[in-house]
Amino acid sequence: MSAHAIGELVGWQVQKLERGERIADRVRRESYDENDRRAQIFRPICGGRTADALRWRDKLLQVAREYNTLHKCKGEREGPLGSNGLWVLEILLSLVDFASGRCDPALDTICAKAKLARATVVRAIDALQDHGFLQKVRRTRKTGMAPTEGPQRQQISNAYAFAVALKDKVRQRFQQLVGGRKRAREIREAKEQAAQARAEALAAPTSRLGSMLLPGDPKLARELDRLGAHFEAQTASSANREYPALESKGEKE
């Protein structure tokens, strides 16, 4: 590349410096374009169902607090996540979109909501990532400028995902807490379906009892239906006084 071409490429930087303006920050290492699959870490939370996602969020915070307490070293004031880490995790979880899993607030936004210094928030995010509660991906975006006009890329906000690298025991604990309500709901729904099926069977004519109970055995089902029809006929005859009930004891014959 000629000296003239190099001068054109850096010319915009020189002009900014001459005007006393600040050159834009360089792109950070290990950053990916926002459309790169490696930056596509957002996943729907609990299928976007708000009630389930809120429970998921609460249980993740509970597990993080338990982890922070259990792994606190003797003589230390704080656990591995620290109170700031737990607070930043709560802030981030309050900003996630359950339907898409999208969570990409700017650092300034997190700092403002947490009322913490930038360096404190960065350390908290690093601790959450080190212990598997958070995944952070640095992202960039094309500026659309010509090479001689300005930088080709700019840094944008990080993307965040949750609970993707929890340790085995921590993950088991989290799944236990989250899955407890789901299992209880499944059992309740199964009981309700069974009760409804029993009610329908009792309400159905006895002449159809075999067909309902034994759909896989047509021959036996027909026999039960025939038996049910026989009892129905007897009941109808009794109701029509064809088989009058015996008079009670003590009445005149």
Rank of each mutant, 00 (worst) to 15 (best):
R139V: 06
R141E: 10
A159W: 02
A236E: 08
L224Y: 15
I41Y: 00
E78H: 13
G144N: 09
L93K: 02
L17C: 05
H71S: 13
R141P: 02
A146T: 04
G250L: 00
D25Q: 14
E251L: 09
A112H: 06
K182N: 04
Y243H: 07
K16T: 03
A199K: 11
K72F: 10
P151A: 06
Q234Y: 09
R26V: 12
G180H: 12
R19L: 03
G48E: 08
D25M: 12
R222F: 02
S238L: 14
A5F: 08
T143I: 06
L70N: 14
Y67P: 05
A165P: 02
P151T: 01
R171A: 13
V178L: 09
P80F: 06
R43T: 07
E149S: 12
D108T: 12
G11P: 10
L81V: 06
L166V: 12
T143N: 03
G210T: 00
R29L: 14
Q135T: 12
R181P: 00
T69Y: 04
E242K: 04
P80T: 05
Q40R: 12
Q193W: 01
A51E: 11
L92H: 03
D217P: 00
A239V: 02
R49C: 01
V170A: 03
L89Y: 06
H230K: 08
F162P: 03
R49E: 14
L17F: 05
E251C: 04
Q154R: 12
D33A: 09
E192M: 09
L107K: 06
F231I: 10
S211A: 15
R139Q: 06
E186D: 13
I41W: 03
T143V: 06
R22Y: 09
L60A: 01
A146Q: 09
E223Q: 13
